[in-house]
Write a protein that binds this DNA or RNA. Sequence first.
DNA 1: GCTACGACCCAAATCGATTTGCATTTTGTG
DNA 2: CACAAAATGCAAATCGATTTGGGTCGTAGC
Lengths: 336, 336
Amino acid sequence: MKEAGRRPDIAAVAAAAGVSVTTVSHVLSGRRPVSARTRAKVEAVIEELGYRPNPSARSLRTDRSESIALIVPDLTNPFYPLVAAGLQDVLMSSGYLLSVTDAALPSRALPEVVRHVLARRVDGIVLATYGATDQDIDKIAKSGTKLVRLGGRFRAEFGDIVRADDTSGVHDIVSHLIDRGYQRIAFLNGEPHAHPSQIRLEGYERALREAGRPILPELIHSGTFTRAGGVEGAKVLLSRSPRPDALVCANDLIAVGALDVTRQLGLSVPGDVAVTGYDDIEAASLITPALTTVLNPAREIGRTCARLLLDRLAGEYDDTAREIVLAHRLIVRDSS
Amino acid sequence: MKEAGRRPDIAAVAAAAGVSVTTVSHVLSGRRPVSARTRAKVEAVIEELGYRPNPSARSLRTDRSESIALIVPDLTNPFYPLVAAGLQDVLMSSGYLLSVTDAALPSRALPEVVRHVLARRVDGIVLATYGATDQDIDKIAKSGTKLVRLGGRFRAEFGDIVRADDTSGVHDIVSHLIDRGYQRIAFLNGEPHAHPSQIRLEGYERALREAGRPILPELIHSGTFTRAGGVEGAKVLLSRSPRPDALVCANDLIAVGALDVTRQLGLSVPGDVAVTGYDDIEAASLITPALTTVLNPAREIGRTCARLLLDRLAGEYDDTAREIVLAHRLIVRDSS
DNA sequence: GCTACGACCCAAATCGATTTGCATTTTGTG
DNA sequence: CACAAAATGCAAATCGATTTGGGTCGTAGC
């Protein structure tokens, strides 16, 4: 007799059901036919004993962990929890476990985070961080771990990409500002080498060019994708003379920081200066003035990533990489 | 010769270093002394081959997964990502992997989520959801998984608890409103049976009693801890006559929803009616009017949970359960 | 009634690490 | 210099599931 406290193993189930472990495994996996009566008996015992296969033993044998990892640059940016929620929407029902890692931890550089995650042998990775280098991505690709990225340069060997068309998004914002008659439109960017920064900046420049406006380097500032970055950058840009009359921010957090500064300087928004964001986090509609921004469908992006990953993990898709572009939408509120 | 594509196993390392697998394992775990020269040699080989122990094999043998799970009620409530970030702050450096599960998924009831997480044999669980029943908790406790809860009824056999003193927090808010001369103070609660709802309501009632005020059932409404819940509840409460002149909301999201309603009704805040929140999520300071609320130290709560869990996992603490109460702080802004 | 053929089940090898019990050096001491 | 004690290495058992190659049993066909 087994002692009570222990978790039953597959042998215990087999014994209780009067069959072999092989048979139990087969009713679990369905890889070989099992008679209806036997199956029913085994399932009853499983239920009764509360048996759950040991995931370590299973993945040791099958080389699959049934878990995927999400790596984000900043959990305090509400955009990323939404992506996580979207992933969950899809992953949960397939039994996958989602782990979330914040690469913004003071002490944790991305290469280390990637090593950490790879060491855990997850089946797939959703890389939502913009600071990834080709080496980081290459390391993931080489490990055989399925990879989906949020944005970034598209390269076949680097896996699928899901993104919104940020260039057009910023372009739409800037065009909107031009339509409204703003003259000196400045751009307040995130980390200068990050891919989203580059493509958003591109949208800014394209819109200006199309309108026949000059692109003035003194009206472009790079910092970080945070509220603090917005504060710092807005101070710089708003001290230019003549002062810009519009601040296009590369995301909503930056815009929130910029509004901190306009408030502090006593500038009226959008009277003295327009401020726009990007992402449409919930705070964008709550802040005063409500932010003009572009809706970045975070949750849907998460769901899409999950689907791509599941496709590949199921072996149903093994061709070249795909890039999926989701719709964005300009949302005009009170700040422009 | 091993083929190139394969990941090296411990035997490959041993062979390359000219020692036995036992020795390699010992330099990895340090459970038995290994000569400095041998250790250096082995470590060099590990580095060269990029060897990482297979976590499945390891946890199969050791019965430890080096991972912990966080279960939250709602990832879109910014409070919970902050808790997750706090957990990461501490867990990461100990090599633990954090998985996050949102129990608010439409199709996922808590018991199922708990089963799912337990089936993965995580070492510890941080249960941050308020809908947990005693059965849920009991199931976790029985499984031997270490448990830390965010709030809830304190019971020795149910593991440690980390919380802020919500009763006092709401009490502080209500007292503040009384001081400011508000007369008809209503309470807009979250899920009625949730523990945080009960203890926050308690703070409301205590403050009224202490001030010699009556507790009027028609001024108390329960809904959900969401913006939508706030909208719905505020509509009800603000239609009472005479109309309450203050709405104490059980969290910030509810308060945000309440402000949606006051705006819609054309009521001035705090002129016609005061609105207060709880948690101090970032949006609380951004919204207009800025919310009077109570700071709930989410990130620190997360860190504390992680520390308690690590204590127990390291076997350094095996006594009765602890309840840790973190400081809250009343933050008076413009909405009261 | 006997052979074939399925249908079903079993024993044993395997995944990759950890961990004993022993055997074999080294080191230290009188 | 010898001998005890400490340091270090090895072989083999073990964790719990998956997965083959082989049986064994029952049934269908003649």
